[in-house]
Design a protein around this nucleic acid. Sequence first.
DNA 1: CGGTATCCTTTTAGATACTG
DNA 2: CAGTATCTAAAAGGATACCG
Lengths: 116, 116
Amino acid sequence: MDGIGDVFLADCPARLAVEVIADKWAVVVLWGLSEGPRRHGELVALIGGISKKVLTQTLRRLQTNGLVTRTEYGGVPPRVDYDLTPLGKTLMEPIRLLTTWAADNGEAVLAAQESA
Amino acid sequence: MDGIGDVFLADCPARLAVEVIADKWAVVVLWGLSEGPRRHGELVALIGGISKKVLTQTLRRLQTNGLVTRTEYGGVPPRVDYDLTPLGKTLMEPIRLLTTWAADNGEAVLAAQESA
DNA sequence: CGGTATCCTTTTAGATACTG
DNA sequence: CAGTATCTAAAAGGATACCG
């Protein structure tokens, strides 16, 4: 994927939005964190269908973008919590609108797909 | 990518939202159509950085999802207009919120990336 | 438990050239 | 003008096994 500092980004905020949310799991993972901190294993179970590896990758990317924190509590077995940053929380409202849209219009999209 | 009818979709609207918008260009192209119908070539120029091939692919996908119409006017040279469907227009409000978020918080994301 | 490492397949994107 | 065809490279995703 192109870097975030690329030439077109400055011209269009849509570019940055895409950069942040346009992968298969980012929105779903953020969604999974919307009600409070979660452990790695919790997220795997909560989300369903995501592998540990991909979840870790996705979380790392969200961390890099400043949307998620990773808190390591020592001990054996290890415990790691992920949580939204304040910045991450500001993204939840747009995401909520998006998922509301999906809930309301999913049927219509499905119907369009089937008739195509 | 997994089909939209997959097992997890029914459980979580976020899944459908992702299915629709989680590719590099979908949101940008929808954004490009937000002010009215556009021709293929117009979109290439307006968006910048997208190839004809990828634009066509993206538009086809949006069509399949019932978000965009393709209208062919006969003649030589050919003319084809793309426009949002009513369903597509309902997606613009969530997208607008998302791009507003990006405009407001882009700096913060950039800063997080650089310190990482 | 929360990862990595490895390997593999699929998907996406981009460049270029060609066509009706 | 609006594509399609071909080829290539890069990224994402997934399965499995192993590690501290």
